[in-house]
Design a protein around this nucleic acid. Structure first.
Lengths: 218, 218
DNA sequence: TTTTCCGAAAATTTTGAAATTTTATTGAAG
DNA sequence: CTTCAATAAAATTTCAAAATTTTCGGAAAA
């Protein structure tokens, strides 16, 4: 994979490393040596350093002065932390969206949910996630992002983005059963969130978001 | 000021620039040219770049691909955004602290408030903030940070730190009356927050935090 | 007058290598 | 056999300069 990029294209290197970190192509805590990555991408060590510095800004990479970069470690504590914070941001963002969002928001949310549901149904039927993984990832993100998109706070939304990515990074290494049953449950949960949001039921929406994510820290 | 630092000490440069950004020593939107800063600190352009990259990660500096760095702009919209987000994080953090915090937390909060109150009283008496500015800044931060310190979510606390700094950056440029009346009001507000927190009154605490910050976006 | 297009100057990004620091290895002493 | 120090190797950080891109100014065309 990791196609050798034509020219020292920093944004491209960033995207590629970002993707690799979110799909567990580095073991948690694994050292990210600029010398190695330099060869992977055919650029200088400094360019790699710059990208790693940016990735450490969003928490996917851990930086320690004078001792380089590592893929951020995973642990039950981190998973708990990132999950709880994600719940908090998503709940508050969703509630604000329900207050401020208009018909446009409702439509976008319904659209995002429709697409997500379609993909998840396919996965549940086929029983295997792998061939749909990228598609599903994008659709899942779009649904959750749309949910909070009308909150009116760009900082909340930006923080949610990085938190969502950290969440993914923590979970992708977790070996769990992603079979049909899992996805059938997920489908129900997304539907419940959608209904609560469109019904402007704040308490129900908070609960639905919690229920959707609680399996990740119990 | 900006003492010429002995050796290429990146953390020191970071702290100094951080401080300068929070005390409005750069105009909002002002270009931060590595060539200039390079001479200020007697280091290479690359070291400056690295520091600016890190500052852009916490939002104090704005980075645009191929067109360098600027002190983050201020605007009514940004002030609104950062204030609302700060309120949200502080309210949630405080409520969680009130649920999880024990006697240790109560003591620390009381201590932080005592120190803050002492400094604010001096300022209100003397009528001028300037000579106490650094002291007050530190004490104010410590009080608000302690308030949320028992929330149990390190990500919330870390996000609050950067949000608090962004808030400061947005506000320092605002020419307002920081006379005795202002500080007498602030003293009351901090006291109200303290009482609500120690009394474990979640609704009152939420309200007190809101009242403390609402002047910044109305 | 306004717009567009060149070329010069300025600024940013990237490089390759030197300087510094950390980590690993080896061997002597307890 | 373990502990510690000295040294060698490896990795990170910094530098100064080259390569690239943007910005600025003025002339030509509309």
């Amino acid at each position: 994979m990791t196609a050798t990029l034509a020219k020292p294209d920093t944004p491209g290197i960033y995207r590629d490393l970002h993707q690799r970190l979110l799909t567990a192509q580095f073991k948690p805590g694994e050292k990210l040596k600029s010398e190695i990555l330099r060869k992977d991408y055919g650029c200088s060590a400094n360019t790699v350093r710059e990208v790693l510095l940016r990735l450490s800004a969003v928490g996917l990479v851990t930086f320690e002065e004078q001792r380089g970069f590592r893929a951020t470690r995973t642990s039950p504590e981190r998973r708990h932390d990132v999950t709880q914070f994600r719940i908090l941001l998503e709940q508050e963002g969703a509630v604000l969206s329900m207050r401020h969002g208009g018909l446009g928001w409702e439509s976008q949310l319904a659209a995002a949910h429709h697409k997500l549901r379609h993909i998840e149904t396919q996965i549940a039927r086929s029983g295997s996630v792998a061939p749909h993984m990228v598609l599903w990832s994008d659709a899942e993100w779009e649904f959750h992002d749309t949910l909070i998109s009308a909150c009116g706070l760009s900082l909340l939304r930006a923080t949610y983005r990085t938190t969502y990515d950290r969440f993914r990074q923590q979970m992708v290494t977790q070996e769990r059963d992603f079979g049909s049953d899992y996805f059938r449950a997920i489908i129900r949960e997304h539907r419940t969130i959608l209904d609560a949001a469109l019904g402007r039921d704040e308490t129900a929406c908070r609960q639905a978001i919690y229920d959707h994510l609680k399996r990740n820290f119990i």
